[in-house]
Design a protein around this nucleic acid. Structure first.
Lengths: 123, 123
DNA sequence: AACGGGGTATAGACTCTCTACGTCTTAGGG
DNA sequence: CCCTAAGACGTAGAGAGTCTATACCCCGTT
C-alpha cells in the first residue's frame, strides 16, 4: 500500500503486515468485494492509504487460503459481477490478534522514539 | 526485527521501514557501535523489539551507503574493537522525514481501525 | 462500434528481514 | 596454556509482502 503524504517528498510502500489487518477490519462492516475494500480503506484514511490492485488481490487470496475470509461471486448494485468477501469467525480472532500486535508495536516504537529519560551516553 | 509479545502466540517479523528509523533515532543519543544500537533499542522497548544481527548490519550498511551515517573503527570500553556509527546532518533530516511518515501512517491506520462513524453497510 | 470505468487477476522485480553460518578478539576458568 | 563464553562484525540464501505493469471481462454511454 502507498502512503500518500500531504507533502510530495514521501516515498512509496510501507508496512508489510498491516494490509491484512486493514482488510479484515474493513470486512467487519460487512461483506464487500475487493475493489470496495480498497475504496473504504482509502476513504476512511482520507486518501492517505491507497491500496494498489497488485497488493489487494494477492492479499485477499492469502486471507482466503488461511481461512480468515470466504468469497463468492455476486452482483454489485451497478449489476456487475464481483467477488464478495466475508469475514469468518477465525478471521475475527485473527483480527483481534493483529490489533493487539499492532498496538504493542506502536507503543514499543514510541518508547524508543521518545523515551522518558535519555538512555546513556551524551553527544 | 522481531516483535516479542507478552503472549507466546506472536509471530515473527514485522515492519520494513521502521528499523532504519529506530537506528537513526538511537544514534541521536550519540555515536554507538552496531551491537550497542541493538541493545539500546531492545532496552528502550523493554525487550519487545529485538533486532537480529542479520537485520542490523545490512541496515547499517544501507544507512551508510545513503549517507545517513558515517562509521569508523575504534575501541569499546571493554577494549574491544568495534565500528562506531555517527549520524550525519543528512541523517538527521532523514530521521525527521521518517518520523513524520510514521506518525502519518499511525494516525491513518487508527482512522481505519476505529472510525468516528461506521462507513456504510451493516452486517 | 468505441470507449471509459468498474472489477479481477497474474508475472516479474524489488526490498527488507530472517535463519544460519563464519570469523575475530578479549576475559576468565581450569 | 588451552578452552570456552561473550562481545562484535559480517555474509549467503531463502522467504514474505508489495509494487509496476499488463491483461482480461463486463456494462453503460456516446
Amino acid at each position: 500500500m502507498t502512503l500518500h503524504s500531504t507533502r510530495p517528498d514521501a516515498r512509496t510502500d510501507l508496512l508489510h503486515g498491516t494490509l491484512d489487518m486493514l482488510i479484515l477490519r474493513t470486512l467487519q462492516w460487512g461483506p464487500q468485494h475487493g475493489y470496495a475494500v480498497a475504496q473504504t480503506i482509502r476513504a476512511q484514511s482520507s486518501d492517505v492509504l491507497q491500496v494498489e490492485a497488485g497488493s489487494l488481490y494477492p492479499a485477499l487470496q492469502r486471507l482466503a487460503k488461511r481461512g480468515w475470509v470466504t468469497s463468492k461471486w455476486a452482483q454489485t448494485e451497478a449489476n456487475q459481477r464481483a467477488k464478495f468477501y466475508r469475514l469468518t469467525p477465525e478471521g475475527k480472532k485473527q483480527l483481534l490478534r493483529e490489533e493487539s500486535r499492532w498496538s504493542e508495536l506502536v507503543s514499543a516504537i514510541s518508547r524508543v522514539m521518545k523515551p522518558a529519560a535519555a538512555p546513556n551516553t551524551e553527544d
